[in-house]
Amino acid sequence: MYSIKKTNLFIIGGLLSIGAVLMAADHLDAPAVMGTTADITDFYAFEGANQDNTVFVANVQSSLAPAGDSATFDENVLVEVNIDNDGDLVEDLIIQAIPRNGIMYFFGPYAPSQTGLNSVINEEAQYLGQVEISTGPAAITSSSNGISYFAGLREDPFFFDFTQFNAVIGGMAPNGFNNPGNDDFDGTNVLSIVIEVPNSFLGGTFSHPAGTGVEVFNTWVEAKRKQ
């Protein structure tokens, strides 16, 4: 189940090395967005080093192998973290990130004036931040109002035998996966946006829809292009 929207790897690693297999697996990616600057590769949300905070990680343009240090965020692409506080699958709060001239600007969390497929940026949102985009090993970070910000090139934390997965899905691997498998994302980079937010800014919670009784909010990430 891999989601992964790791299309670039597929293209670069695949077509070059194992053309036939990969061609068969090419249908696994969503063609409209694959390989573009709006291609989300992964989304993480976890408790921060400070237990009162939640960390959101949104990665785009995956598999920038091997170095991929020339990739840049697109000034026409807005990355938006959505938070649903009541379980109706509609965003109650958003956190937006968009680059301008080497700086990533952040807006929120705040309640959007409209929900759904189209977004605008409220420059008067309650929480605003910015950080210089990191292009090398040093991570340039900033913080304001208790929120921490990072944007830039990082090692892709994803690990997956995507090639064998495609073979399995494509009916070309009757024995399934290999033991051990091969991490196709080893040695690759990704453009990463990391935001650590005090939980007190993230709104309410509801009982887990799977019935576990744990209090949760829903979250998801979107990439939206300027029209």
Binding site: M1, H27, L28, V33, Y105, S119
Partner: peptide, 24 residues
């Protein structure tokens, strides 16, 4: 920062679209 931004990609859980969507 003006303008309208229209959705092109989205993700919540890992791998859902790649595995469970059967066609392009």
């Amino acid at each position: 920062f003006s303008g309208t931004f229209a959705q092109q990609d989205q993700m919540g859980r890992p791998g859902i679209n790649t595995v469970l969507s059967g066609t392009s």
